[in-house]
Amino acid sequence: MLKTTDNNRKLLLFYILMVLSLLALPLFIKNAYIMHLVIMTCVWGVVVNNWNLTLGYGGMFHIAQISLFAVGGYMSGIFINELMISPWLGLLVGGIFAALVSLIIGLPALRVKGIYLILLTYAFHYGIKELTDHFREITGGSMGLVVPRFRMAGVALQNWQLYYVILALLAVSVLLNWMVVRSYIGKALMAIRDSDILANSTGINPYKFKLMTFVMAAFVSGVAGAFYASYLSVIGTEIFSFTLIVNALGMIVIGGMGTLLGPMIGSFIITFFMEIFSGLEDYRPILVGAVIILVLLFAPDGLIQEGNKRWERWKSRGKKKSEELEV
C-alpha cells in the first residue's frame, strides 16, 4: 500500500518534471530547425494521440485520422482565404468541419468493423483526395493551398510562440483522452474492444460510444490540421500520401497501441528518426517500414511497455539472486 503511493508520488513528480521541461524547451533550443521538428512532433503527437484513442482503446481499426486531419487543414484554409476569417478562428472551423465529416463517414462506417471498416475508411481517404482534386479552384489542387500564418496584434508569431500554441493543444488532447479513458465512456469503449457482444448484452450501445469517441477524436485532429496548415502556411495533396499513414501508424505501434503517452513518444521517435536519416532520403520509408515490422515481431506492445517489462524482469532477477545469496 505504502509502495503504491510512493510509486504514485514518483510518477507525479515525473509528470511535473516532464511538463516543466516541455514548457522550458524554447529556452534551450536555439536552432530554428530543431524547433520546427519539435513543433511537428507535437502536431503528429495530437494526431496519433487521437488515432490511438479510437484504435487502441476503441478497437476501431480505421485509417481515416489523417484524412480528417487534412479536412481540418483544408477547411480552415478555405475559410481563411474565402471568408477572411482569422487563422485563430480557423482552428475552430477546422475542428468543426473535421467533426462534421467524421460524422458523415462514421455514421455508416462504424456500424461495421474489422476489415470492412479498414476498407471503407481507406476508400474514404481516397474519396477526400479525389474531392480535393475536383474542387481545385478553391483547394489549389496539386499546387497546394496557401494559408496565412498566425498573427497577434498584427505581428506574425515566432516559432517558439507557436510551440506554446501546439503544446497547449497537445495538452488538451492528452487530458481529454485521459479523461475519456478514465470515465465511463472509456470503460465502455474498452469493453466493446474486448468483446462487443458482451458489452452489448450489459447494456452498452457499441455504436453510440464508438461514434462519440470517433467524432471527438476527429475534432481535435481537425484543430491540429488547421494549425498545421497555418503553421506551414501551405497545405497540399501530399498530405494524402500513403507514407504519412504508414508513419503515423508506425508512431502508434512503436510507442505502444492503447497506451496514453506511448504514441507521442512514437511521434517523437519517428519525426527525429526521419530527420537523422535525412541523408538517406530514398531509404527512409524502407527503414520506417522495417522498424514497424521489427517492433511488431519483437515488442508487440510497443517499445515503452517492452522496456518496462525488461526492466522489471532485470530488477526482479537481481532481487532473486540477492535472496538466494541471503539463504
Partner: peptide, 23 residues
C-alpha cells in the same frame, strides 16, 4: 495471435516494397 498486426505488417511491407521499386 493478433490479426491487426498482420494488417499493420502488410501496410509496412507495401510501403517498403514501393520504395524498393523506386530505388
Amino acid at each position: 495471435k493478433n490479426d491487426t498486426n498482420i494488417f499493420i505488417a502488410t501496410v509496412a511491407l507495401s510501403s517498403i516494397m514501393a520504395q524498393v521499386y523506386h530505388i
